[in-house]
């Protein structure tokens, strides 16, 4: 499985790609997670990638035909072709406060499934910071149980408890759960 993440520098697209990979590895899969580095600065559009497989992963080039695309910043929809290479059965998950059906029409993306979740608002409610990356992971797992929600939660705890403390870690977990429940899917 190949996932492409679109975000802006500083929004945690690289972290999200890596967290999901690590959770999958702990569930027994082979993984790869890597960002596409360009001129790096906060706010610049960036891409990152996750590969997950039951077998060792040989391929090392960029992901061109992802199974899933996750858009962490809705403003990218205007400047970046986020559906590029997305396969027919593909899933496009976007952080935006609009119903999925509406976005599907706007993007003229009739091939696959579109899902939306207002992850920025969820992050502001829970974490009090505009960091939508972890809620996006929660929403993604609702649509495709790549790993269990519990596996992700345990990974987040392991990664963040020591670094940012219990209160913020719990706020992050709360955001993940809310996005998991609130994600909206087009038919």
């Amino acid at each position: 499985m190949e996932i492409r993440w679109h975000g802006r520098g500083g929004q945690g697209a690289k972290t999200a790609a890596q967290l999901l990979a690590e959770a999958a590895m702990e569930s027994g899969d082979y993984i790869q997670a890597f960002p596409e580095y360009g001129p790096e600065r906060a706010g610049a559009p960036i891409k990152s990638f996750t590969r997950i497989s039951k077998n060792p992963i040989n391929i090392h080039c960029g992901v061109t035909n992802p199974d899933i695309v996750v858009v962490i910043d809705p403003t990218l929809l205007e400047s970046v072709d986020v559906t590029k290479g997305l396969t027919n059965e593909g899933l496009l998950l976007i952080n935006i406060a609009k119903p999925a059906a509406e976005i599907k029409k706007v993007l003229n993306f009739d091939k696959g499934k579109v899902a939306t979740v207002d992850a920025t608002s969820i992050a502001l409610d829970t974490l009090k910071l505009p960091m939508p990356n972890l809620p996006m992971l929660g929403a993604l797992l609702k649509l495709n149980p790549i790993v269990t929600l519990e596996a992700l939660e345990s990974k987040i705890k392991k990664k963040f408890l020591e670094k940012i403390g219990e209160e913020k870690t719990n706020a992050n977990l709360e955001g993940v759960k809310r996005a998991y429940e609130e994600v909206n899917v087009s038919e």
């Binding site: 990979a21 993984i31 790869q32 997670a33 890597f34 580095y37 090392h60």
Partner: peptide, 12 residues
């Protein structure tokens, strides 16, 4: 090892 391709990619 290959810069970025393996140096910055997370693998198992």
């Amino acid at each position: 090892q290959d810069g970025f391709i393996t140096s910055h990619a997370v693998e198992a």
